[in-house]
Design a protein around this nucleic acid. Structure first.
Lengths: 200, 200
DNA sequence: CAAAAAACATACTAACTAGTATTTTTTATA
DNA sequence: TATAAAAAATACTAGTTAGTATGTTTTTTG
C-alpha cells in the first residue's frame, strides 16, 4: 500500500479504537496502552502519529464525535417536509433507535462535556464547535418553518434550539440511571408538548 | 471531644474535601492521596472510615450532592404561591445565581452521571434516588397547580417534570463550553416559552 | 490506673500511567 | 539496488494509583 494511505489508515484505526474505548470506559480511565492493545499496534506507533493524549482527545471529538452528531442529529434537519414534524421526528426517533449499549452509556459528546470540558480549553473549543453547528442547523430549520408559516413567529429561534438540545443531552445522561425506557417515554411526551405549542 | 462525635466529624471533613475535589477535578482523577492531603489527615484515617473509594463516592452522592440538589431545586418547590411562577422562578433564578466556578464546572450530579454512572450500579442507584425525589417534588407541585386551576390539566405530570429536569441538566453541561452567559439566556427564554403554555 | 478498643500514622506493594529514547523494520526514491 | 526517510517496535523512566500491613497515639471503660 502507498505510504500516505497506510499512515492515514493507522491514524483512523487508532481513532476508531479510541472512540470505542472512550465511549465504553470514559476518557480518563482509558490509557494509551489500552488503546494500542486494541489496535494491535504499539506505543511507538501512537507517539509517531500523535503528540500526546490531549491531541488524540481533540481529534476524537472533532472527527468521530462530530460525525456522529452530524449524521444522527444535524443531517436529518435538512430534509424536506414540515419543519415541526422534522423536529419532533429527529429528537424522538433518534432516541428510540439507540442500541441498549448506547442507552446505557449515554451521549459520547455529553460524556466528554461533563468529564473533561472544564479541564482544557482545547476540548471546550472542539465540543463547542459541534454544539454551534447543531444549533445553527436547528435555527435554519425553525426559520424555514416560520417562513412557511408552520412555526409561530413569536418565539426566538435561539431559545427553541438551545432548549431542545439541552433537554436531549440531559435525558441522554439521566437514562443511564434506569434499567428501562420509561424515562425516555416521559421525555418524548414532554418534547411533543413543547413542539405542539410552537405551531403557527 | 467525645469519640463518636470526633469520628463523625472526621468523616464529614473527608466528605467535604472529597466533594470539593470531585467537583473541581472529577471523580476519577481525584485520588485518595489528594483528598487526604486536603484534610491534613493520612491514608490510615481514610481506610479506617471507608472501605474503599467506591464507598466514598456513593456517600458523597447520597449526602453532599443529594443535599445540594435538595436545597437548590427541591425545597423551593414546596413554597406557597402560584405553581407556574414557582417553576419558572426555581429553574431560572437558580441558574442565574450560580457562581462563575459553578457555571464553569457544571452540575456535580450531572458530572457524576456522565462520568461514572455507567460503571457501577451503586452509583446509579444513589444518583437515581436524587432524580426520583426531584421528579416527585415537581409532580407534586404540578398536581397542586392543576387543582388550583393554574396549570392546564391536559398535560402529563411525568412528562413535564422530566422535560424540565432534562433541559436543566443539559444546559448545565453545555454552559461549560462557553465563556459568557448568553447560552443561559437562550435557555431561560426557552424555559419561559415552555412554562407559558402550561397555563390553564 | 490498666487493659482494650478506637482513631489515626507510617511505610510499603504491585499495578498502572503518560511520555521518552533508542532500535528495528518497512517503504519510497534516486 | 543502495540510501534515506517513514513507520512502527522495544525497552525504559519517573510518577501516580488503590489498597494493605503494621505500627503509634488517643480515648474509653472496667
Amino acid at each position: 500500500m502507498e505510504q500516505k494511505q497506510k499512515s492515514e489508515l493507522t491514524k483512523q484505526v487508532i481513532l476508531n479504537e479510541s472512540f470505542k474505548l472512550f465511549y465504553r470506559n470514559g476518557f480518563k480511565t482509558t490509557s494509551i496502552d489500552k488503546i494500542m492493545k486494541a489496535t494491535n499496534l504499539t506505543k511507538g506507533a501512537f507517539y509517531y502519529h500523535y503528540k500526546n493524549k490531549k491531541e488524540l482527545g481533540v481529534e476524537v471529538i472533532s472527527s468521530k464525535i462530530q460525525k456522529r452528531v452530524y449524521d444522527g442529529m444535524i443531517t436529518p434537519l435538512y430534509q424536506d417536509g414540515n419543519a415541526l414534524e422534522i423536529l419532533e421526528d429527529t429528537f424522538s426517533r433518534r432516541l428510540k433507535s439507540f442500541s441498549l449499549f448506547d442507552k446505557q452509556h449515554g451521549c459520547p459528546m455529553n460524556n466528554f462535556i461533563n468529564e473533561i470540558a472544564d479541564e482544557e480549553e482545547a476540548y471546550q473549543i472542539a465540543l463547542k464547535r459541534i454544539i454551534e453547528e447543531w444549533k445553527a442547523a436547528l435555527i435554519h430549520l425553525i426559520e424555514r418553518g416560520k417562513k412557511e408559516n408552520t412555526i409561530n413567529k413569536k418565539y426566538a429561534n435561539n431559545a427553541i434550539a438551545i432548549y431542545l438540545i439541552s433537554a436531549f443531552e440531559g435525558i441522554r445522561g439521566i437514562r443511564k440511571l434506569y434499567n428501562d425506557d420509561d424515562i425516555l417515554d416521559d421525555y418524548i411526551l414532554g418534547l411533543q408538548l413543547y413542539i405542539d405549542q410552537l405551531k403557527a
